[in-house]
Design a binder for these strands. Structure first.
Ligand SMILES: [Mn+2]
Ligand SMILES: [Mn+2]
Ligand SMILES: [Zn+2]
Ligand SMILES: [Zn+2]
Lengths: 156, 156
DNA sequence: ACAACTATTTAGATCATATCTAATCTGAAA
DNA sequence: TTTCAGATTAGATATGATCTAAATAGTTGT
């Protein structure tokens, strides 16, 4: 996306276009990974060191509120973010914890009986297993169960 | 589930059955919500105050490694847990943040092309919208967009 | 171009959650 | 009953996120 389009989308959400805020948005948009606030802080300041830690957090909060960025649902401690460009699902690797985008496809909605009086807005998918890299590094053996997988991952 | 069954499932995972560990497991199994470590600490010690904070965390770690408990994938800061009894999906309320269980149903797996060389183990669903309580408290208006919903929720 | 107004940025303090340490205790096997 | 690896503990420490209040800078109107 070009600079002006980003600036317009900020303005369209009632957010001023500051160099710091622009940098966070632009970085997330060209990212295919799902960086933490700390990673965004580093990357953004490596290019142009004008953002404080608080500003990164402030801007992530504002961009999420504006719907331009989302926090990814997963079980780690540090929040991870992606720009809400195109709709997609996620794949989380059991072994290395990496979060990858998966092509979006409509998922059958829960049965009305199961839904009850809840109002459904969307269904997102979290696929789990081994990422390409981890799958090739060692084929999962029969006794390599959840325990082993979580162990490996937690040990970083 | 009866006490002996819990003890057997702990032993079956190579975990000693201690009063503290048993209490965490038993509490999670009778829970329909998705408590944080702090909530488990409080609840367990209200009944029988023998567990330290570190022990709650230690046991949650051990039970997750054993596959008897899982940490729920969601975007909050404090980890939330449930016993992995019956397979199910989750519904997260946009307004109050509550996580509810949804009946399990098989989800169509991603297309082979999209999956690539990844090894798929499972697909879990995160449904979003308004829980029964929030849906009835105020019907969503047309201009009540993501921004408003997140705002309301973040304000606790 | 300039002033005025308010959103934004900032360093550092503080909070919330999770993990580590190393001393002590205990479940369960023999 | 003895034994000892596994489990518990209080408190210290680490990590990630938010708050504070003073300084700065986009944007709008002139
Ligand atoms: Mn993504
Ligand atoms: Mn659940
Ligand atoms: Zn991997
Ligand atoms: Zn709700």
């Amino acid at each position: 996306m070009n600079p002006d389009a980003i600036k317009r989308s900020l303005a369209g959400s009632g957010l001023r276009s500051t160099p710091q805020r622009y940098a966070v948005m632009a970085f997330l948009m060209k990212q295919t990974s799902h960086p933490t606030a700390a990673e965004i802080f580093e990357a953004v300041n490596r290019v142009d060191p004008r953002s404080s830690r608080a500003t990164i957090y402030n801007n992530l909060r504002d961009l999420v509120q504006a719907g331009l960025v989302r926090e990814v649902a997963m079980e780690g401690r540090a929040a991870r973010f992606d720009a809400t460009g195109t709709r997609h699902h996620h794949f989380i690797c059991d072994r290395c914890g990496k979060i990858e985008d998966m092509d979006w496809y409509a998922v059958p909605r829960p049965a009305a009986a199961s839904l009850g009086k809840r109002v459904l807005r969307e269904c997102e998918l979290i696929c789990r297993g081994l990422c390409t890299q981890c799958a090739s590094r060692r084929a999962p053996t029969q006794d390599s169960g959840l325990k082993e997988r979580i162990n490996t991952w937690k040990k970083k």
